[in-house]
Amino acid sequence: MTFKLIINGKTLKGETTTEAVDAATAEKVFKQYFNDNGIDGEWTYDDATKTFTITE
């Protein structure tokens, strides 16, 4: 399955996707992406659209 990440950061904005077997696996991938890029904020997940959103 394809999961999308929408980034609404102070310095970084955009979208990316990842292929994962489930939302929990995608969450781990995206959290690592947050850490690697110094993004910290509030994030949500919409199961209907398989979209994670992080807002700094």
Rank of each mutant, 00 (worst) to 15 (best):
W43P: 02
A24S: 09
N37D: 06
T11P: 05
L12D: 09
D40P: 07
G41M: 10
L5A: 09
A24V: 10
K31Y: 06
K13H: 12
A20H: 02
G41H: 10
E15K: 05
Q32A: 12
N8A: 06
K50I: 03
F52A: 00
T55M: 05
A23P: 07
K10I: 15
G9K: 11
D22Y: 02
T25E: 13
K13F: 10
E56T: 06
E15A: 06
K28S: 09
D47V: 09
L12Q: 10
G41P: 03
A26Y: 01
N8Q: 09
D47I: 06
N8D: 11
D46F: 02
T55H: 07
N37W: 15
L5Y: 02
E19M: 13
D46A: 02
A26T: 00
I54H: 06
K13D: 05
V21I: 12
T18V: 14
D46V: 04
E15R: 03
A20Y: 03
E42K: 07
E15Y: 10
K10Q: 13
G41S: 04
L12H: 13
F34Q: 15
I6E: 03
D40K: 13
T25C: 06
D22M: 02
G14K: 15
W43K: 00
M1P: 08
E15I: 07
I6G: 00
A23E: 06
F52Y: 04
A23I: 06
K13W: 13
K31D: 03
G14R: 11
D46R: 02
A48L: 09
T53V: 06
K4L: 09
T2W: 09
E15P: 06
A23Y: 14
E27S: 05
D46Y: 02
E15C: 12
D46G: 00
T17Q: 10
D36L: 08
T16W: 15
W43L: 15
K28T: 08
N35K: 15
N37E: 14
Y45T: 00
T49R: 05
T18H: 05
I39F: 14
Y33R: 05
N35D: 13
F3S: 01
W43V: 08
K50F: 10
T44H: 10
T11C: 15
K13G: 08
M1N: 12
Y33W: 13
M1R: 07
A23N: 03
D22S: 04
G38F: 14
